[in-house]
Design a protein around this nucleic acid. Sequence first.
RNA 1: GCUGGCGUAGCUCAGUCGGUAGAGCUGCUGAUUUGUAAUCAGCCGGUCGGGGGUUCGAGUCCCUUCGCCAGCUCCA
Length: 635
Amino acid sequence: MNIKFKDGSQGQYSDGATPFEILKAKEPEATKRAVAARVNGQSVDLWRPLHADAELEFLTFDDSEGRDVYRHSSAHLMAQAVRELYPGVQLGIGPALEDSFYYDILVPEFLTPEDLEKIETRMGEIAKRKVPIQRRELSREEAITLFQERGEVLKVELLQEMEEGVSVYQQGDFVDLCRGPHLPNTGYIKNFKLLSLAGAYWRGDESRPMLQRIYGTSYPTAEQLEEHLRRHEEAKQRDHRRLGKNLDLFSFHPEAPGTPFWHPKGVILVDQAVKYWREMHTAHGYQEIRTPVVLSDVLWRQSGHYDHYRENMYFSRVEDRDYAIKPMNCPSGLLVYKTYQFSYRDLPQRFAELGLVHRFEKSGELHGLIRVRAFTQDDAHIFCTPEQIETEIVNLIGLVQEIYRTFGFTEVRVELSTQPENSIGSAEIWRRAEAALESALKKAELPHELNPGEGAFYGPKIDFHIRDSLGRSWQCGTIQLDFSMPERFELEYIGADGERHRPVMIHRAILGSLERFIGLLIEHYAGDFPLWLAPVQARILPITDKQHEYAIGVRDRMRKAGLRVEADLRSEKMGYKIRQAELEKVPVMLVVGGREAEADQVSMRLKGQGDQGAKPVNEVITLMQNAVERKQQQL
RNA sequence: GCUGGCGUAGCUCAGUCGGUAGAGCUGCUGAUUUGUAAUCAGCCGGUCGGGGGUUCGAGUCCCUUCGCCAGCUCCA
């Protein structure tokens, strides 16, 4: 048979040759790196015999597909070790992740970290034996019998939902239901580490039993494994909860779980972000409103929140009347709109609101600033005619991107979420709304993923996601198109024809939650904020107390110039004061000794960059003002 | 909410087998007057998350409750 290779070459091989044999004949050295093959675009085992002409490619750990094979086989190796060590276990599923793998296992006894060590040791033994990993293709019936005999009820359940023609992989006594491909033998898995242990519902369903999920990672070389663990350690250092405490930005207290207490430095961060946000919104034709936090339950019944969002809401009852604490700002926006009589000439109307909303979250879902129970949405509701939808949304996408860029976020994932099960509005309305969002995304040339069934209950949405330090992705911005609320609240505008028409409503947030956004911002910059955001922009460090008066003078001049400046007047050595300022991540340190005081100068030291030499005070002020003005990432 | 883990001084953490709670940093006082990442000395600081129990005796063992962490589920 004739085999074509990716490099353009081709060769003749006898029928039944495996990719491994072909590679060995062609390029013996490369067999060490190959983990799987791709035949006519489909990934297969290196030991799968070929029987027809084909295009052949080899996958290594450097390909994401090859990495998945490596991790997937690692998961099998781990499962094999667990089965050998703990009788009576049942396997769930065990896929590869981006840079790790896991296996969900039903274990009669709870595993402990010590168990992980035992499992690791056993994995090492099995790997050393280089146990061949073999594929077998079975009928569904045969597979069900096989797993039933082995007491693998979970696998049988999976099989019952699968199509005819399945494959299993066997290594020694261990058999697993799996599509593959896999490594040729367990000896390929050389460097691995089991990372953590957690519960996970079987098939992600709260009502099903909880399995134990074991996470691990594996690499071909020890250096790569070390590097992975080091990166993980580093990521922990930039965790916003840790930095928030160290940098004195905010605190949490059991008296109000899930709601941050902002400290003075944290407030500066929030204020700077809001100041910029206001400038941008004014420039883009928004007007700001401010509405109540506690509103009558009658309103929430009318809006549909009572029926569709009640589990997440807080309620209050006074003087025999029921109130709800707002989980969203939209109903208030609608009430404001209704106080006006708008003509088509007045639209679009863009009402922005920094609204404090409360949403009840189950205790286990809270996470620092990123997942809280009370947060400030940088909300806005745009009321427009149906014809204006596309332009509005395309412009909005541009605004979102510009604002993210200013904060240094360049890696943003975009999703289009469509009608959920629990929703209001007719099928026709949903179809129109979804089509409108799709065409706006197309026009804006924004690559995006589809997230079916994840829209808001009143309309589909475009979501913007940002990753945290540990690689978890969080929704920030959102653009939601809503034909239903205007209907429910009977909004109107007067058209060119003199008749009453119904406007369309766009709900949108860019930062999403101020709290979440600041949390992600802290992690993004690892606390090293650009000058315009830094809570303390400069600290003046006099060498002896002879310069105190001069230092205070410089500090006050800089403050009058609009800069956030402190002076460290403690009787400490320079090295100590610098160390403190560096640890507190103050971007600019200004050392003043006798020489500087004499010449109206300061010695400028930049955080992480060291001494920049003496400069006139006015020059430093101008330099810093410019960096703030331009929102420079670096001074 | 669920599964598992963790709560000791303001912070980071020790505390063995159940036998009188410890260190460093911070803070305070004093000395020191310092030139680019830790000057020295002394002092203060604790209902061991809360409540209950076992015990002659509990930071340590048991129950319960609150909070936090990882993951699951759910969401900005």
